[in-house]
């Protein structure tokens, strides 16, 4: 017992003596301004934010150089005016091929840990690789992208300013875009102003707010957590189908209980990000609320919160009030912020 303790102490000593490998930090440190009401954002230690990194990431985000035929950029399917999503049900890649899921909005990504509708990417940096290399999206070969960026008159010096070397790597591309994406913070909606005591909500919006949280009515808050991110970022089956056409989270985990589950999206700017659901099947917010009121289908993996919910528990007026509340989450400053375009 005692010797075990010594080993522990010794191990702790060894661990504390191990030299920490600090990656050199280049550029000018950038401190994110987190709006009141949102939690602190954990920035990966190996990718600290800098003005230069963010500016480079923004330029890459908007540059079609990252697609196979230099016709599409990230922004082609993630439009700021639409909360950085695609107003089309399915996006069309450079080869004219459509996917089978609706583009995800890019809002408050720094609080999320898993990306894509099925959570297949474990970090914002790794996520960047997906759309760039996917044959039905930007269909670019990484080596080709790096060759083009390296031959460009501006990029080598921009990479040097951000990461200390003119040598462009897939890692520095991923890290720059992730830095820019972490700045895409929305926290100044009418709802946020209401919470800060700056504006009043209408009676209908207030009714909606209460119904949104009411366990016997909207019961939205279990997943669309009230007050900050408006998502728990878990994977849930919302009863869209009784026979799953898209296996969702199952494709990643191979766990039968994950069939037909998709990531809970944030409701911030939800008014701007139509169409809705992973497959963009609903055009309006009212259709979405109706789905949760009467439309959901029972199946083995249906979320328990819905399984126990009573169908038809809300009137049309109540559903309309919830929609009115959701529209208070629209942040017009976010979609017009010049720092983002």
């Amino acid at each position: 017992m005692k010797s075990g303790l010594y080993i522990l102490i010794f191990t702790a000593f060894l661990a504390s003596c191990k030299p920490e490998v600090e990656e050199p930090v280049y550029g000018t440190p950038y401190t994110l301004v987190i709006p009141q009401g949102l939690p602190n954002m954990a920035i990966p230690a190996n990718n600290p934010m800098t003005y230069e990194g963010i500016a480079l990431g923004k330029r890459l985000f908007y540059d079609p150089i990252l697609s196979g035929d230099n016709t599409q950029s990230c922004a082609s399917c993630h439009l700021q005016i639409n909360g950085f999503t695609d107003p089309n049900q399915f996006s069309t890649g450079i080869d004219g091929v459509q996917g089978n899921r609706n583009a995800m909005p890019l809002i408050n990504l720094g609080w999320q840990t898993k990306f894509f509708w099925d959570g297949g990417a474990n970090g914002l940096e790794s996520q960047v690789l997906g759309p760039i290399t996917n044959p039905i999206e930007m269909h670019e070969d990484l080596a080709n992208a790096i060759a083009e960026l390296s031959a460009d008159s501006d990029y080598p010096s921009l990479f040097k300013a951000a990461f200390g070397s003119e040598e462009i790597t897939s890692q520095s591309i991923m890290r720059a875009i992730a830095q820019f994406e972490r700045t895409l913070i929305s926290g100044n909606s009418k709802y946020d102003k209401y919470i800060r005591g700056e504006v009043q909500l209408t009676q209908q919006e207030l009714d909606g707010l209460n119904l949104f949280s009411d366990m016997d009515k909207g019961d939205c808050v279990h997943c669309h957590v009230m007050g900050s991110t408006f998502s728990d970022f878990e994977f849930r089956n919302t009863g869209l189908d009784s026979i799953y056409t898209d296996a969702g989270r199952y494709l990643i985990t191979l766990n039968e209980n994950d069939r037909g589950k998709f990531k809970t999206p944030s409701l911030r700017n939800i008014e701007l990000t139509a169409p809705y659901m992973h497959d963009g099947r609903f055009q309006t917010l009212l259709e979405c609320v109706q789905h949760y009121n009467t439309g959901f289908h029972y199946s083995q993996n249906l979320d328990p919160n819905l399984f126990f919910a009573t169908k038809g528990r809300m009137t049309i007026q109540e559903m309309e009030a919830i929609v009115a509340f959701m529209k208070t989450l629209t942040d017009t400053e976010f979609i017009t912020n010049p720092a983002f375009h």
Partner: peptide, 11 residues
């Protein structure tokens, strides 16, 4: 990832 030995949709 440039080595082409990674699944990007399921990292």
């Amino acid at each position: 990832p440039i080595n082409g030995m990674i699944w990007t949709w399921n990292t």
